[in-house]
Design a binder for these strands. Sequence first.
DNA 1: TGGGCCTCTATTGTATACAATTTGATGGCG
DNA 2: CGCCATCAAATTGTATACAATAGAGGCCCA
Lengths: 234, 234
Amino acid sequence: MGAINRASDIAYAKIRAFLLGGDANPGDQLTEEKLAEIAGVSRTPVREATRRLEAEMLLVRNASKRIFVADWSRDDIDEIFVLREMLEGHAAERAARRLTATQLSDLEASNRKLHHAVDYETPDITSFLDANRDFHETIVAAAHSPRLAQIMALLVDPPVVLRTARSYSAENLRQSARDHDELVAAFRARDPAWARAVMGSHLRRAFHIFVNAAETTTTQTMDRTDNASCDAAK
Amino acid sequence: MGAINRASDIAYAKIRAFLLGGDANPGDQLTEEKLAEIAGVSRTPVREATRRLEAEMLLVRNASKRIFVADWSRDDIDEIFVLREMLEGHAAERAARRLTATQLSDLEASNRKLHHAVDYETPDITSFLDANRDFHETIVAAAHSPRLAQIMALLVDPPVVLRTARSYSAENLRQSARDHDELVAAFRARDPAWARAVMGSHLRRAFHIFVNAAETTTTQTMDRTDNASCDAAK
DNA sequence: TGGGCCTCTATTGTATACAATTTGATGGCG
DNA sequence: CGCCATCAAATTGTATACAATAGAGGCCCA
């Protein structure tokens, strides 16, 4: 049966990497066959992968079900951050009430790793992202709300987090680590309102850093949004 | 190509009806083959349908990917209503700022239909549900947030809405219609805070009606939650 | 020259056969 | 009597062939 390495998972991972790796331009048409070639599997598992990527809105389909690389407009970015603030704030609140001692020390471990990645000369972005993901995943797990976890997965995975971290300066990264410190403090105090507030400012700061970076350096990205819009004309 | 009636959509609809129609018991194992028989199509479109139903958490899989009828515990119900309140409150807020004149009159039309269904002797539940769905869908559309719409679809579709409406008394239904009246008033006034507040009380009332009905009349439903839990042991 | 129709091709949808894996049972052995 | 190995049956995963549909481009006719 579908082993530990199901072809559909491989397809998902490879297509995702292809989409985020910069080889695909928003608005480009893709066919199941091309994607099957990229993933090195047949169309059947590719179809499952494309469904998942549609759910994440990395792919979109036009009226006749043809597949296109999605474009992320400024509105999309705004939307993501607003929803994340609301949902992850909620998760933090719940987590503050429910965290176990083990989860608390997991958070502290992730946070140590995170500090390690950014507190010295040259920040290690990959390590930062790993620790950051673990940290937020622990919070969502502690919130003990399976649907919330499922929804968050749709919002957190997408390209925004990756690009955000890349646009962070060393000081931004360190401030992010300090936010995590304060979150741990709020959890220790079991103060839901505090946890929510810290999470809110954490994400709003990330939003502004991302938007500033996008508006100044990466003008070409924002230019592309004018061409093919989210509903993939064609 | 996959016509207007794709087999996978048929499969989705039929399996869904099977799951909600009471013929399936929480914890029951289902196989793709059985479902294919129920749907009258081959396993390929059934697989797509099961993925969608997994996302809606009407189906769950165990560690070895076998499929089971999901069980909805009291915690699940709580979770659904908390998330709906948060997200639909947010949608109402945004809608209050963005509603077009057309959408406003659409809401009023849905609401007239809704009153028509419940303001006389014997309430017409089906008609009520239709109008109710239209009403809430218009609000979500007016919120102009595609990801929010996608997430709401995961939370609103499931069995809860259906069962809630069935447990409404005639007076409950009329109060629900009055809530809708007040929502329209809030939208007319373009008052986001008012809209959110009305939506909140609307949903919290629904929650309590549902829970009371479940705890008194349908004790057998709640009994089943003890047996097979959401992660479908087996 | 322009518009409508028609064919041909590209692309997605479905069925089916086969592969891989898990489960459950059966039987041997300590 | 219990436990582990091994095999058969049940179940999911993948590939591939075929069906159905939408798109593109040419052709005819006005």
